[in-house]
Design a protein around this nucleic acid. Structure first.
Length: 245
RNA sequence: GUUCGAGUUUUAC
């Protein structure tokens, strides 16, 4: 059962849609009950290639086989619509999830927030974050980084920074991606020194810079009028054995 | 400490 869904994710990563379909249907025909996670992997595969109608067909077959879609099922579909800029469809999927009696989890909310960010509905985002907290969920780095991007997109850099400070006071999780995002915001705000400062605090927290970190920092320095500093970043990168281009 | 799903850099008109 468990090894099965693992197998499905492997197949999904290699984009063998037809193979995945075959395995899944033959299992079902043999009287096995594939897990919802196995179907979710297949749905995710279609979604990652922009094949929403194929994804929805899998959802239908799931229902026909009496395998109940999960929160992850709907979240996957929602993210597919969001990726295509089909915001209303994404929001409808969120409603559908709740109508089925399922509860959105932190990943679902992260996806919902990305939709409202693209729609430039900041107040709505604040409402959603309040709602998720009311439901006992802990806002994490994904939630806050999405909000930070929304403020930055409107040029409201001080509010973006306040969110970043607030999250640390609150003790929310932090990760490299959050730092990458805030560094990028400082870069666009014309504050290369803040990006550099953030790079150092990320290191002091024991976070490991990735290729996006270095690229973002280099970008911040070159557009920020400090191209001379770029060489230092390169040296740091090589010393850290980072597999960057 | 049990990874099926969410957020980040660049991208030639």
């Amino acid at each position: 059962e468990r090894t099965f869904s693992a197998m499905m994710t492997v197949i999904a990563k290699e984009d063998k849609a037809d193979e995945a379909e075959r395995v899944l249907t033959s299992m079902a025909e043999a009287g096995w009950r594939p897990t919802a996670a196995a179907f979710n992997s297949l749905i995710s595969l279609h979604v990652n290639h922009g094949r929403m109608s194929a994804a929805l067909k899998v959802l239908d077959r799931m229902v026909c086989l009496a395998i109940h879609p999960t929160t992850a099922t709907y979240t996957t579909i929602m993210s597919g619509y969001a990726a295509q800029g089909l915001h209303q469809e994404a929001l409808n999927t969120f409603l559908a999830l709740k109508e089925k009696g399922l509860s959105p989890d932190i990943v679902t909310y992260g996806c919902l927030l990305a939709v409202y960010r693209d729609l430039r509905r900041i107040q709505k985002m604040e409402d959603v974050i309040a709602e998720l907290k009311r439901e006992g969920l802990a806002a994490n780095s994904v939630i806050y980084s999405t909000l930070i991007q929304a403020y930055a997109q409107e040029g409201r850099y001080d509010e973006a920074e306040r969110v970043f400070e607030g999250l640390r006071v609150e003790g929310a999780s932090v990760d490299v991606t959050l730092y990458n995002i805030v560094m990028s915001v400082h870069s666009r705000a014309g504050q290369p020194f803040k990006a550099v400062a953030l790079f150092h605090s990320l290191l002091s927290l024991g976070l490991v810079p990735d290729t996006v970190t270095y690229n973002t920092l280099i970008q911040a320095l070159s557009v920020g009028g400090l191209p001379g500093e770029v060489e230092k970043v390169h040296r740091h990168m090589l010393q850290a054995n980072c597999a960057c281009d």
